[in-house]
């Protein structure tokens, strides 16, 4: 941050900006994803990528099935010990700058596969930028995670972040309804 560049504008003036801000802004809306999809979270990833939730709204829809062309690694699902060298290698093949997103509880921590088979979180293998909890996470949570990652890219922040749980507005409204129903006379004698 802090270096100034000058772009030639019109004859009347010029535009100044900080080059890292400009790069961050450009990068955050053109993420090329490498989906490393291993398990059931992949279904949610498909929902996310298809028109209903539509990650192309955030400029992150283009998958690249070569890690050399990708800058965002989506780790979607459980990583077994046997897959660990593959994941490490895929990560190493990606070009800088690169980001890693742990999709779901298994990728983040190993989840309930707490035994000899499974890596307890991909951060044991590769630096991870954003963790999205959920089994699987709802597409909205993943979009939260993507936006969090975009904020981090824009500000150059490489500390790991976790998507915070959100209250579901539907179930929040349902609770008073249910209470009302329980309190209301049913017309039955019991």
């Amino acid at each position: 941050m802090g270096e100034l560049i000058t772009l030639q504008g019109s004859e009347q003036g010029f535009v100044t900006t900080r080059v890292n801000d400009l790069l961050g802004w450009a990068r955050k809306y053109s993420l090329f994803a490498y989906p490393f999809v291993t398990a059931c979270c992949g279904m949610e990833f498909m929902a996310l990528a298809s028109p209903r939730f539509d990650i192309s709204r955030f400029g992150a829809e283009a998958p690249r099935f070569s890690p050399r062309q990708a800058d965002l690694l989506w780790v979607v699902g459980t990583i077994s010990q046997r897959q660990a060298p593959v994941l490490r290698r895929i990560y190493e093949q990606m070009m800088e700058p690169k980001w890693v997103l742990a999709f779901g509880t298994c990728a983040s921590t190993g989840g309930f596969y707490d035994n000899y088979t499974t890596v307890a979180g991909i951060d044991k293998l590769v630096p991870t930028d954003v963790y999205i909890p959920g089994c699987p996470p709802r597409p909205e949570a993943v979009i939260d995670g993507l936006l969090l990652l975009q904020d981090k890219i824009a500000s150059g922040d490489r500390t790991p972040g976790v998507v915070k749980p959100r209250e579901d507005p539907v179930s929040r409204d349902l609770v008073p309804l249910r209470k009302k129903r329980e309190g209301a006379p049913t017309g039955r004698t019991s």
Partner: peptide, 24 residues
């Protein structure tokens, strides 16, 4: 007991805690 095929990153290397983060 796990038998990792690749050495896990250490916390010094990572610079961040690798134990489970909230909300895990």
């Amino acid at each position: 007991k796990t038998q990792p095929l690749v050495a896990y990153r250490t916390e010094e290397e990572a610079g961040v805690p690798l134990e489970k983060l909230a909300p895990f």
